[in-house]
Amino acid sequence: MILVSALTIAVLFGVGSYLLLQRDLIRVVVGIILVSNAANLFLISAGLSRGQAPIYPLEEGVEVSDPLVQAMTLTAIVIAFGISALLMSLVYRVYTSHLSLNLEDISEAEVREEESIESREVAED
């Protein structure tokens, strides 16, 4: 079980990191979501123990799995949920202002903008 979750985390993290390095903004967002889910899984694995669900009434003498990591992971999932919505809307805003989701186009726009600022300042000097 520990090996399985370690492998899953590794695969999720790897795929997420790979996507993060892509030029498409949507892929970057998906990469972030995958990486944060890898972290959630890691959090679950931090208290990996076999046992009954920790809900009353409990049977006598039976081991109970750790509820705290699950509560933490639930909180982390909620946060990741909010963040992915925020990132999506940011990507949409970037798209409407640049009409592109390709990082190269966007950084080109940035370079153009910076050059215009600098030339204005040189003209002022």
Binding site: A39, N40, F42, L43, A46, G47, M72, A76
Partner: peptide, 10 residues
């Protein structure tokens, strides 16, 4: 950081 916290808990 989240991973760090998880590890500290572990």
């Amino acid at each position: 950081f989240l991973i760090g916290v998880g590890a500290l808990y572990h």
